[in-house]
Protein backbone atom coordinates (compact mmCIF):
# COMPACT_ATOMS: atom_id res chain seq x y z
CA UNK A 1 0.00 0.00 0.00
CA UNK A 2 2.78 2.39 0.94
CA UNK A 3 4.46 1.66 -2.35
CA UNK A 4 1.32 2.60 -4.22
CA UNK A 5 1.24 5.96 -2.44
CA UNK A 6 4.77 6.84 -3.40
CA UNK A 7 4.05 5.72 -6.95
CA UNK A 8 1.33 8.26 -7.41
CA UNK A 9 3.52 10.99 -5.94
CA UNK A 10 6.36 10.28 -8.33
CA UNK A 11 4.76 11.88 -11.40
CA UNK A 12 3.69 14.87 -9.33
CA UNK A 13 7.22 15.39 -8.07
CA UNK A 14 8.40 15.00 -11.65
CA UNK A 15 6.05 17.83 -12.64
CA UNK A 16 7.36 20.06 -9.86
CA UNK A 17 10.90 19.37 -11.02
CA UNK A 18 10.01 20.48 -14.53
CA UNK A 19 8.57 23.72 -13.17
CA UNK A 20 11.74 24.37 -11.18
CA UNK A 21 13.92 23.53 -14.15
CA UNK A 22 12.18 26.04 -16.40
CA UNK A 23 12.15 28.60 -13.59
CA UNK A 24 15.85 28.28 -12.85
CA UNK A 25 16.85 28.36 -16.49
CA UNK A 26 16.46 32.13 -16.51
CA UNK A 27 19.00 33.86 -14.22
CA UNK A 28 16.53 36.66 -13.46
CA UNK A 29 13.89 34.35 -12.05
CA UNK A 30 16.54 32.33 -10.21
CA UNK A 31 17.68 35.54 -8.51
CA UNK A 32 14.05 36.39 -7.80
CA UNK A 33 13.48 33.00 -6.21
CA UNK A 34 16.59 33.34 -4.02
CA UNK A 35 15.63 36.84 -2.85
CA UNK A 36 12.11 35.73 -2.01
CA UNK A 37 13.37 32.66 -0.16
CA UNK A 38 15.81 34.76 1.90
CA UNK A 39 13.06 37.19 2.91
CA UNK A 40 10.64 34.45 3.82
CA UNK A 41 13.29 32.61 5.82
CA UNK A 42 14.13 35.80 7.70
CA UNK A 43 10.46 36.38 8.43
CA UNK A 44 10.01 32.79 9.53
CA UNK A 45 13.07 32.77 11.79
CA UNK A 46 11.99 36.04 13.38
CA UNK A 47 8.63 34.46 14.05
CA UNK A 48 9.99 31.21 15.44
CA UNK A 49 12.94 32.50 17.45
CA UNK A 50 14.28 36.05 16.91
CA UNK A 51 17.38 35.28 19.02
CA UNK A 52 18.76 33.26 16.12
CA UNK A 53 18.90 36.49 14.16
CA UNK A 54 20.57 38.27 17.06
CA UNK A 55 17.49 40.13 18.12
CA UNK A 56 17.10 40.29 21.85
CA UNK A 57 13.64 41.77 22.19
CA UNK A 58 10.60 39.73 21.45
CA UNK A 59 8.04 42.49 21.04
CA UNK A 60 6.11 43.75 18.08
CA UNK A 61 7.14 47.37 18.35
CA UNK A 62 10.15 49.46 17.55
CA UNK A 63 12.19 50.21 20.63
CA UNK A 64 13.24 53.83 20.95
CA UNK A 65 16.25 54.86 22.96
CA UNK A 66 15.55 58.28 24.39
CA UNK A 67 19.03 58.50 25.95
CA UNK A 68 20.64 58.78 22.55
CA UNK A 69 17.99 59.78 19.98
CA UNK A 70 20.25 61.07 17.21
CA UNK A 71 20.85 58.63 14.34
CA UNK A 72 24.16 56.76 14.63
CA UNK A 73 26.00 55.47 11.57
CA UNK A 74 26.59 51.72 11.04
CA UNK A 75 29.25 50.52 13.45
CA UNK A 76 31.48 48.99 10.72
CA UNK A 77 32.15 52.45 9.31
CA UNK A 78 34.39 53.25 12.29
CA UNK A 79 35.65 49.76 12.98
CA UNK A 80 35.36 47.26 10.05
CA UNK A 81 35.05 44.32 12.49
CA UNK A 82 32.33 45.77 14.64
CA UNK A 83 28.87 44.59 13.65
CA UNK A 84 27.04 45.63 16.79
CA UNK A 85 25.00 48.15 14.78
CA UNK A 86 25.10 46.78 11.22
CA UNK A 87 22.61 49.29 9.81
CA UNK A 88 23.12 52.07 12.32
CA UNK A 89 20.22 53.67 14.15
CA UNK A 90 17.45 56.03 13.24
CA UNK A 91 15.51 58.57 15.26
CA UNK A 92 14.75 58.15 18.15
CA UNK A 93 17.61 55.78 18.79
CA UNK A 94 15.99 52.83 17.03
CA UNK A 95 18.33 49.99 16.08
CA UNK A 96 17.73 49.68 12.34
CA UNK A 97 18.83 46.04 12.08
CA UNK A 98 16.34 45.12 14.72
CA UNK A 99 13.66 47.27 13.15
CA UNK A 100 14.15 46.06 9.58
CA UNK A 101 14.08 42.37 10.49
CA UNK A 102 10.86 42.82 12.43
CA UNK A 103 9.45 44.99 9.67
CA UNK A 104 10.12 42.30 7.06
CA UNK A 105 8.12 39.80 9.07
CA UNK A 106 5.26 42.20 9.69
CA UNK A 107 5.11 43.43 6.12
CA UNK A 108 5.12 39.91 4.68
CA UNK A 109 2.51 38.71 7.16
CA UNK A 110 0.28 41.67 6.43
CA UNK A 111 0.66 41.28 2.70
CA UNK A 112 0.05 37.52 2.82
CA UNK A 113 -3.08 38.06 4.88
CA UNK A 114 -4.48 40.64 2.48
CA UNK A 115 -3.57 38.79 -0.71
CA UNK A 116 -4.65 35.34 0.47
CA UNK A 117 -8.00 36.64 1.72
CA UNK A 118 -8.56 38.66 -1.43
CA UNK A 119 -7.52 35.73 -3.63
CA UNK A 120 -9.82 33.24 -1.90
CA UNK A 121 -12.82 35.55 -2.17
CA UNK A 122 -11.99 36.42 -5.76
CA UNK A 123 -11.27 32.85 -6.87
CA UNK A 124 -14.51 31.48 -5.46
CA UNK A 125 -16.65 34.30 -6.85
CA UNK A 126 -14.83 34.17 -10.19
CA UNK A 127 -15.22 30.45 -10.74
CA UNK A 128 -18.92 30.44 -9.80
CA UNK A 129 -19.43 33.46 -11.99
CA UNK A 130 -17.94 31.65 -14.98
CA UNK A 131 -19.67 28.35 -14.30
CA UNK A 132 -23.19 29.56 -13.68
CA UNK A 133 -23.17 32.76 -15.75
CA UNK A 134 -26.44 34.68 -15.90
CA UNK A 135 -27.37 37.37 -13.41
CA UNK A 136 -24.83 36.23 -10.82
CA UNK A 137 -22.03 36.68 -13.31
CA UNK A 138 -23.44 40.04 -14.33
CA UNK A 139 -23.50 41.34 -10.74
CA UNK A 140 -20.01 40.15 -9.93
CA UNK A 141 -18.56 41.64 -13.08
CA UNK A 142 -20.23 45.03 -12.51
CA UNK A 143 -18.90 45.00 -8.93
CA UNK A 144 -15.38 44.37 -10.16
CA UNK A 145 -15.80 47.23 -12.63
CA UNK A 146 -16.70 49.56 -9.79
CA UNK A 147 -13.74 48.52 -7.67
CA UNK A 148 -11.35 48.78 -10.59
CA UNK A 149 -12.37 52.37 -11.15
CA UNK A 150 -11.59 53.51 -7.57
CA UNK A 151 -7.93 54.36 -6.89
CA UNK A 152 -6.91 52.23 -3.91
CA UNK A 153 -5.33 55.06 -1.94
CA UNK A 154 -8.55 57.04 -2.10
CA UNK A 155 -10.65 54.16 -0.82
CA UNK A 156 -8.26 53.16 1.94
CA UNK A 157 -7.95 56.77 3.12
CA UNK A 158 -11.71 57.21 3.00
CA UNK A 159 -12.19 54.04 5.07
CA UNK A 160 -9.54 55.24 7.50
CA UNK A 161 -11.22 58.59 7.94
CA UNK A 162 -14.62 57.06 8.64
CA UNK A 163 -13.70 53.88 10.50
CA UNK A 164 -10.45 54.82 12.17
CA UNK A 165 -6.87 54.25 11.18
CA UNK A 166 -6.01 50.80 12.45
CA UNK A 167 -4.09 48.03 10.76
CA UNK A 168 -7.25 45.88 10.71
CA UNK A 169 -9.27 48.50 8.87
CA UNK A 170 -6.42 49.03 6.48
CA UNK A 171 -6.28 45.33 5.69
CA UNK A 172 -10.05 45.13 5.18
CA UNK A 173 -9.90 48.10 2.84
CA UNK A 174 -7.16 46.46 0.82
CA UNK A 175 -8.93 43.09 0.70
CA UNK A 176 -12.07 44.77 -0.60
CA UNK A 177 -9.95 46.24 -3.33
CA UNK A 178 -7.90 43.17 -4.12
CA UNK A 179 -10.42 40.40 -4.69
CA UNK A 180 -11.76 41.75 -8.02
CA UNK A 181 -8.54 41.14 -9.92
CA UNK A 182 -8.62 37.48 -8.84
CA UNK A 183 -12.28 37.18 -9.74
CA UNK A 184 -11.51 38.51 -13.21
CA UNK A 185 -8.46 36.34 -13.82
CA UNK A 186 -10.15 33.16 -12.61
CA UNK A 187 -13.35 33.88 -14.48
CA UNK A 188 -11.50 34.43 -17.74
CA UNK A 189 -9.60 31.17 -17.35
CA UNK A 190 -12.61 29.22 -16.14
CA UNK A 191 -14.71 30.33 -19.10
CA UNK A 192 -12.31 28.62 -21.47
CA UNK A 193 -11.64 25.59 -19.25
CA UNK A 194 -15.38 25.04 -18.88
CA UNK A 195 -15.63 24.44 -22.64
CA UNK A 196 -12.87 21.81 -22.61
CA UNK A 197 -13.96 18.31 -23.47
CA UNK A 198 -12.60 16.90 -20.23
CA UNK A 199 -15.18 18.92 -18.30
CA UNK A 200 -17.91 17.47 -20.49
CA UNK A 201 -16.34 14.04 -20.01
CA UNK A 202 -16.58 14.51 -16.26
CA UNK A 203 -20.24 15.39 -16.56
CA UNK A 204 -20.78 12.33 -18.75
CA UNK A 205 -19.14 10.29 -15.97
CA UNK A 206 -21.84 11.44 -13.55
CA UNK A 207 -19.59 13.88 -11.66
CA UNK A 208 -21.57 16.48 -9.74
CA UNK A 209 -21.25 20.19 -10.41
CA UNK A 210 -19.44 21.04 -7.19
CA UNK A 211 -16.76 18.51 -7.92
CA UNK A 212 -16.47 19.65 -11.52
CA UNK A 213 -15.94 23.21 -10.31
CA UNK A 214 -13.45 22.49 -7.56
CA UNK A 215 -11.60 19.49 -8.93
CA UNK A 216 -11.55 20.04 -12.68
CA UNK A 217 -12.03 23.73 -13.42
CA UNK A 218 -10.32 25.44 -10.48
CA UNK A 219 -7.02 23.53 -10.54
CA UNK A 220 -6.66 24.28 -14.23
CA UNK A 221 -7.07 28.02 -13.66
CA UNK A 222 -4.36 28.26 -11.01
CA UNK A 223 -1.29 29.06 -13.11
CA UNK A 224 -2.08 32.75 -13.74
CA UNK A 225 -3.26 33.02 -10.12
CA UNK A 226 0.19 32.11 -8.82
CA UNK A 227 1.69 34.73 -11.08
CA UNK A 228 -0.78 37.40 -9.96
CA UNK A 229 -0.21 36.33 -6.37
CA UNK A 230 3.51 36.94 -6.47
CA UNK A 231 3.11 40.36 -8.06
CA UNK A 232 0.48 41.32 -5.50
CA UNK A 233 2.56 40.28 -2.50
CA UNK A 234 5.00 42.99 -3.56
CA UNK A 235 2.30 45.49 -4.44
CA UNK A 236 0.60 45.25 -1.06
CA UNK A 237 3.89 45.70 0.81
CA UNK A 238 4.54 48.77 -1.32
CA UNK A 239 0.99 50.02 -0.73
CA UNK A 240 1.33 49.69 3.02
CA UNK A 241 4.70 51.41 2.91
CA UNK A 242 3.21 54.22 0.84
CA UNK A 243 0.42 54.71 3.36
CA UNK A 244 2.93 54.89 6.18
CA UNK A 245 5.22 57.10 4.20
CA UNK A 246 2.55 59.67 3.46
CA UNK A 247 1.76 59.63 7.15
CA UNK A 248 -1.51 57.77 6.95
CA UNK A 249 -0.36 55.26 9.49
CA UNK A 250 -2.39 53.64 12.20
CA UNK A 251 -2.09 56.52 14.65
CA UNK A 252 -0.84 54.76 17.78
CA UNK A 253 1.99 52.96 16.29
CA UNK A 254 5.59 52.19 16.74
CA UNK A 255 4.90 49.27 14.46
CA UNK A 256 7.97 47.95 12.68
CA UNK A 257 7.17 48.60 9.04
CA UNK A 258 9.54 49.36 6.17
CA UNK A 259 7.61 52.38 4.88
CA UNK A 260 7.37 53.80 8.37
CA UNK A 261 11.12 53.35 8.96
CA UNK A 262 11.85 55.05 5.65
CA UNK A 263 9.55 57.92 6.46
CA UNK A 264 11.36 58.53 9.75
CA UNK A 265 14.71 58.33 8.01
CA UNK A 266 13.73 60.71 5.25
CA UNK A 267 14.30 63.87 7.31
CA UNK A 268 17.68 62.72 8.52
CA UNK A 269 18.87 61.41 5.21
CA UNK A 270 18.59 64.81 3.60
CA UNK A 271 20.93 66.23 6.21
CA UNK A 272 23.51 63.52 5.54
CA UNK A 273 22.52 60.47 7.64
CA UNK A 274 22.05 58.40 4.49
CA UNK A 275 21.77 55.04 6.24
CA UNK A 276 18.46 56.02 7.81
CA UNK A 277 16.73 55.73 4.48
CA UNK A 278 19.04 53.56 2.40
CA UNK A 279 18.68 50.40 4.52
CA UNK A 280 14.89 50.33 5.01
CA UNK A 281 14.39 51.65 1.49
CA UNK A 282 16.57 48.95 -0.06
CA UNK A 283 14.97 46.25 2.05
CA UNK A 284 11.65 47.29 0.56
CA UNK A 285 12.87 47.68 -2.99
CA UNK A 286 14.75 44.39 -3.14
CA UNK A 287 11.72 42.50 -1.83
CA UNK A 288 9.48 44.05 -4.48
CA UNK A 289 12.08 43.32 -7.14
CA UNK A 290 12.45 39.69 -6.04
CA UNK A 291 8.70 39.07 -6.03
CA UNK A 292 8.32 40.59 -9.48
CA UNK A 293 11.22 38.62 -10.96
CA UNK A 294 9.71 35.45 -9.50
CA UNK A 295 6.29 36.35 -10.88
CA UNK A 296 7.71 36.80 -14.37
CA UNK A 297 9.56 33.52 -14.09
CA UNK A 298 6.44 31.69 -12.91
CA UNK A 299 4.51 33.05 -15.84
CA UNK A 300 6.91 31.23 -18.15
CA UNK A 301 7.35 28.13 -16.03
CA UNK A 302 3.60 27.53 -15.74
CA UNK A 303 2.80 28.32 -19.36
CA UNK A 304 1.54 25.05 -20.80
CA UNK A 305 2.98 25.91 -24.21
CA UNK A 306 6.49 26.07 -22.79
CA UNK A 307 6.17 22.80 -20.88
CA UNK A 308 7.02 20.19 -23.52
Amino acid sequence: MFDKMSDSWKPRIENFKITMKILLKSPASAIGLIIVLVYFIIALLDQVDPYILGITTNVNTLIPNYVNTAPQPPSWLTNPWDFSLPFGTTYPGINLYDGIIKAIRIDIAFSLFVVVSGAIIGIVLGVFSAFYGGWFDEIIMRLTDIFFSIPYLVLVIALGVFLGRSLEILSIGLIILWWPIYARVVRGQALSIKEQTYVEAARASGVKNSRIIFRHILPNTMAPIFVQFSFDLATIVLALATLYFIGFAPSNSWLPELGFLSSIGYEYAIVGDWWTIVFPGFALMIFALGMNLLGDGLRDALDPRLRR
Binding site: S8, P11, Q196, Y198, E200, A201, S205, K208, H216, N220
Partner: peptide, 27 residues
Protein backbone atom coordinates in the same frame (compact mmCIF):
# COMPACT_ATOMS: atom_id res chain seq x y z
CA UNK B 1 -21.39 6.62 -22.07
CA UNK B 2 -19.38 8.47 -24.67
CA UNK B 3 -15.87 8.43 -26.14
CA UNK B 4 -14.99 11.85 -27.50
CA UNK B 5 -13.49 12.81 -30.81
CA UNK B 6 -10.26 14.36 -29.55
CA UNK B 7 -8.30 12.33 -27.00
CA UNK B 8 -5.98 15.29 -26.50
CA UNK B 9 -8.65 17.42 -24.87
CA UNK B 10 -10.88 14.80 -23.30
CA UNK B 11 -8.49 13.86 -20.46
CA UNK B 12 -7.90 16.36 -17.64
CA UNK B 13 -4.17 17.18 -17.84
CA UNK B 14 -3.88 17.38 -14.03
CA UNK B 15 -5.22 13.90 -13.33
CA UNK B 16 -3.30 10.65 -13.22
CA UNK B 17 -4.57 8.02 -15.65
CA UNK B 18 -5.87 5.86 -12.79
CA UNK B 19 -7.90 8.77 -11.42
CA UNK B 20 -9.27 9.60 -14.85
CA UNK B 21 -10.55 6.06 -15.32
CA UNK B 22 -11.73 5.82 -11.72
CA UNK B 23 -13.74 9.00 -11.90
CA UNK B 24 -17.06 7.49 -13.06
CA UNK B 25 -16.64 4.73 -10.46
CA UNK B 26 -16.01 7.24 -7.68
CA UNK B 27 -18.95 9.38 -8.66
Amino acid sequence: QIVFQDPYSSLDPRYLIKDIIAEPLRS
